[in-house]
């Protein structure tokens, strides 16, 4: 029995268990419901707006972009929070005390947060298709594009979440260190309005990060070819999308294990104890 492969198998099972437990938890159900209802209400109130010069209705333009933002947001903030919290509550330390435990733990995290995308995307996609017309113009090929963009987007952004969760000093800091930058980035990445309305240098910054490209990729899947005129350079730039996302994925795959190892090395019982005391003070 190869212990590493065995640990990865246990990690997959762990991720699945966490996923099932999360689906059953009222707290997480509430979160999915809240995001979905919020998005749908936003789209519903903008349902009669037409995007200038394209003949496209706003929900048609915005839905793929919002899905893109959700992928990025979900797999950066989700793991960052989870990791920061599990560093403090001892989950991570438990795994550090096991043979090959960290490999299993990280596999579990990756599995859990990847699976977690499904309900958050489906709870928006399914009702959107019931409420709005003309969302998907790409047909079967379009869905195929959705699939690879989501997978690449996941690989590009999930490591960022793991890194963030490893370096934040405490769970309470995930908000300022993680949520704020990600929200800012989303705001400038052409999710709620086309990126051209921003200044040139802001556009340049946005195009360094994966969020813009995930949105672009999803728009290329959902929107009719005529809508390409809304994009920069009147092109879907599929090649560049793949290139940027793969680059982020490779960088992430190289850096994340190192950051995780360093973080795990520093884990100890007294750290967990200190976090516990800090939290108790926070509460009282």
């Amino acid at each position: 029995m190869n212990p590493t492969r065995h640990a990865i198998g246990l990690g997959l099972r762990r991720g699945w268990t966490e996923f099932v437990l999360s689906l059953r938890s009222p707290q997480d159900q509430g979160f999915y419901l809240f995001t979905a209802v919020g998005t749908l209400v936003y789209l519903w109130f903008n349902r009669d707006n037409e995007l200038e010069g394209t003949g496209l209705m706003y929900p048609t333009y915005a839905l793929p972009s919002i899905l893109g933002a959700l992928v990025a947001f979900g797999v950066v903030i989700g793991p960052a929070f989870a990791l920061a919290m599990e560093r403090e509550d001892g989950t991570l330390l438990r795994h550090k005390a096991l043979p090959h435990g960290m490999q299993g733990y990280v596999t579990g995290q990756l599995t859990y947060h990847s699976l977690g995308l499904l309900p958050s995307l489906l709870t928006i996609l399914v009702p959107s298709f019931l409420l709005f017309d003309g969302l998907m113009h790409g047909g079967a090929a379009g869905w195929l594009t959705v699939a690879w963009v989501v997978v690449l987007g996941l690989l590009a952004t999930l490591p960022l979440g793991m890194i963030l969760g490893s370096v934040v000093p405490s769970t309470q800091k995930v908000g300022t260190w993680g949520m704020l930058p990600v929200l800012l980035l989303t705001a400038i990445s052409g999710i709620f309005f086309p990126i051209q309305v921003m200044w040139g240098w802001v556009q340049a910054i946005a195009q360094v990060f994966p969020v813009y490209w995930i949105g672009l990729g999803l728009r290329s899947a959902f929107l009719p070819d005529s809508a390409v005129t809304v994009e920069l350079g009147d092109s879907w730039r599929t090649g560049v999308t793949v290139l940027v996302l793969v680059t982020w994925a490779v960088l992430g795959a190289l850096v994340t294990p190192r950051v995780l190892r360093r973080m795990a090395r520093r884990q100890s019982g007294s750290q967990v104890q200190a976090a516990r005391e800090a939290t108790l003070q926070w509460v009282h």
Binding site: E86, G90, L98, P99, H100, G269, V272
Partner: peptide, 27 residues
């Protein structure tokens, strides 16, 4: 033996022990 406080709150003891014990099987 570690001092835990709120980890694995959604798990059951049986499930957690089965999962964590699994790591020792190769040994």
């Amino acid at each position: 033996v570690l001092q835990s406080w709120r980890d694995h709150a959604r798990w059951t003891p049986r499930r957690l022990l089965t999962q964590l014990g699994g790591y020792f099987e190769p040994f």
